[in-house]
Design a protein around this nucleic acid. Structure first.
Lengths: 139, 139
DNA sequence: TTCGATGCAAATAGTTTGCATTCTA
DNA sequence: TAGAATGCAAACTATTTGCATCGAA
């Protein structure tokens, strides 16, 4: 938390109540949240904070590499702390997002780098498909 | 092409000029195109075809499994024929979409299925990152 | 006291929906 | 000729931008 605010200052940004609350919210809820959901949570404590501000601050945090944004098919983008590297399994059936350790992707990332010179950003990694519950055949 | 139209009919759909042209366009340009780009190409031959119709027809083709939609971070979704299974590397620098054979993902897909019971839809698979040209360090 | 951050409104991009009309089967 | 498909307009969701004001450093 302090590290977040320190990094903000280092890069010429200013620490405002809106940013502090957003950072706290992100730290508190370790799940994936849309900008609107985050705004609601922030507004519970500071009603004046506008959705626009949340977008702007998320953008800044993303630039600093503290937050990662993920687009999962339909619906709004979701944001989460960049802390522990992990990938996502996005179920097309129920929309659930399952986090999986980045290590699962290590082999793939290495192969892609070797064959295509492409560096995979692990935090944004999302695989679409169907989770166990939504899978049609065999339970 | 005939197969596409036949499948349409089989599933209770009707074959209209708009659908025929959309299918032709998709077959002709084997790259990833947004709904708007596809509409433009169709409109070059049939100006009356509305963007809305393209969206509706893409949706139908997606339901039939003939077309796959991919969301890649920013910008519009892109559509492509579901013919050969492959994944995508989406460069955050230049926006380029690199196709890679699905076989690269086989190991990963198997691991995810084993550990999480999650079935990966290979055609929608997109990895974000940076391509060789946009990579900052070591050319 | 300066310049970045904010609130607000309005614009924008992408996509979906309602409804009367058209056309395929 | 019945009902799916279309054109058009308009709604809608997610996000961005312009601008005057406010506040952190």
């Amino acid at each position: 938390m302090d590290a977040v605010l320190a990094l903000l200052r280092e890069h010429g940004g200013r620490v405002t109540p809106a940013k502090r609350l957003l950072a706290e919210t992100l730290l508190a809820s370790q799940v994936h949240r849309s900008a609107e959901q985050l705004a609601e949570q922030v507004q519970a404590r500071a009603p004046d904070v506008h959705l626009t501000t949340v977008y702007r601050n998320l953008e800044e945090l993303e630039r600093l590499g503290l937050v990662e944004r993920m687009h999962s098919g339909h619906g709004p983008a979701t944001y989460h702390l960049a802390s522990s590297p992990h990938g996502h399994l996005v179920c097309r059936g129920c929309g659930e997002i399952i986090e999986v350790p980045a290590s699962l992707f290590d082999g793939l990332a290495a192969a892609v780098l070797r064959d295509y010179g492409f560096v995979v950003t692990t935090g944004q990694l999302a695989l679409a498909g169907q989770c166990a519950d939504c899978r049609p055949s065999q339970a």
